[in-house]
Amino acid sequence: MKRLETIKKIVDSGVVAVIRAESKEQGLKITEAVKNGGIKALEVTMTVPGAIDIIKELAETYKDEDVIIGAGTVLDPETARLCILAGAEYIVSPSLNPETVKLCNRYRIPVMPGIMTVKEAVEALELGVEVCKVFPGNAFGPSIIGAFKGPIPQGNFMPTGGVNLENVKDWIKSGAVAVGTGSDLTKGAKTGDYALVTETAKKFVEAVKAAR
């Protein structure tokens, strides 16, 4: 049941914060700022130095809070297993790797693999994927969700890449169950302005609610 509960939390939240950072310290600061802005689904990417350690620390820190910690940019099952052991509650990948999906299914952990075509979307559904990550979203635009929904109305899609405050409502209204956003959300961190990250997070949450 926990797997379904996690998926429900991600969909209810509507926004997955994609956290990329240049150091563990910065990653932790960004995570706290995003959480303070009301985003409950936090995705720590494997491109962050010490990402596994960050996931482990966050999983422990927020174990009693209504926050879900996930791992992103997971390319293979070996990395997925490390993330799960560290406490990741969901796995996100930029591509569809069947072995990674199978491993996540084995441990009842939600996995959102990246897809770009109807063929990949159908393959993901056949593997038991509940939410497909449309990536990179900016290569298509919001209309791609409707295009996918035509032949695959049963599919759930979450765009990542190019999702910003200007177009987030279009993505939701096109049928996306949630959105993933990174650089547009966390750009304040580049100058140490974590208050801006928190404020931007609040705006994303409000925009998704308004669009729904």
Rank of each mutant, 00 (worst) to 15 (best):
K2C: 00
K2D: 12
L4E: 13
E5P: 07
T6L: 09
K9G: 03
K9Y: 01
I10E: 01
D12S: 10
A17V: 06
V18K: 04
A21S: 13
E22K: 13
K24N: 01
E25I: 15
Q26W: 08
G27H: 12
L28W: 05
K29L: 14
K29H: 10
I30C: 00
T31Q: 11
T31P: 02
N36W: 00
N36L: 09
N36E: 15
N36Q: 15
N36R: 15
I39N: 12
L42H: 08
L42C: 06
M46K: 09
A51M: 08
A51P: 10
D53G: 09
D53Y: 11
I55S: 08
E57S: 15
A59C: 14
T61D: 04
Y62R: 09
D66E: 09
D66C: 03
D66N: 13
G70K: 03
G70C: 10
A71V: 07
T73W: 03
T73Q: 06
L75P: 09
D76F: 02
D76Q: 03
A80S: 12
R81I: 13
C83T: 07
C83A: 15
C83V: 06
I84C: 07
L85V: 13
L85D: 15
A86E: 13
G87M: 10
G87R: 12
G87P: 11
A88H: 04
I91M: 07
N97Y: 08
V101D: 01
V101F: 06
V101P: 09
C104Q: 03
R106T: 15
R106G: 11
R108D: 14
I109M: 12
I109A: 11
V111A: 10
M112D: 00
P113F: 12
I115S: 01
M116P: 00
T117P: 09
T117R: 07
K119R: 15
V122H: 00
E123S: 15
E123F: 13
A124R: 03
A124I: 04
A124F: 10
L125E: 04
E126S: 12
L127M: 10
V129C: 05
V129T: 05
V131K: 02
V134C: 00
F135N: 06
P136S: 05
I145V: 14
G146W: 06
A147L: 06
A147P: 02
G150V: 03
P151Y: 06
G155A: 15
G155E: 01
N156W: 03
T160I: 08
N167C: 09
N167F: 12
D170Y: 06
S174A: 15
S174C: 02
G175L: 02
V177G: 00
A178P: 07
V179W: 03
G180M: 06
T181G: 05
T181V: 11
S183W: 11
L185G: 04
T186L: 03
T186S: 12
G188T: 00
A189R: 09
K190R: 08
T191G: 03
D193T: 01
V197M: 00
T198D: 01
E199C: 12
E199Q: 14
T200W: 02
K202Y: 04
F204K: 11
E206V: 04
A207Y: 10
A211E: 06
